[in-house]
Amino acid sequence: MRVTFKLYAMLADHLPDEARRTNALDLEVPPGRTVGQVIDEFNLPPKLVHLVLVNGNYIQPGDRAGRALAEGDVLAIWPPIAGG
């Protein structure tokens, strides 16, 4: 199944070059792939995995390992950031 994987701010360095200008990558993943597995697959530094959203909804740290993705989901991740 296909999902969209987005990495922002410092985490964008973990995207392939061609995806950096959009911050987004289309991923083909097997059914049942979890948020935690995608994070592990990209070797994202745990300290930088702060704000994790699936379709804009926040996924608590304790729920990430068990949260299965569905066809068409958008998984977006930010390091600790803030604005005003």
């Binding site: 701010a9 410092m10 911050n23 600790p80 803030a82 005003g84």
Partner: peptide
């Protein structure tokens, strides 16, 4: 020592929120 005030804000400024707030609708 804080990741937001020590790293996030200096590098990306408040503007880093544009994609966040768009993503959360």
């Amino acid at each position: 020592d804080n990741a937001v005030t020590g790293q996030g804000l200096p590098k990306f400024g408040t503007q880093v929120l544009m994609n966040v707030i768009n993503e959360v609708g």
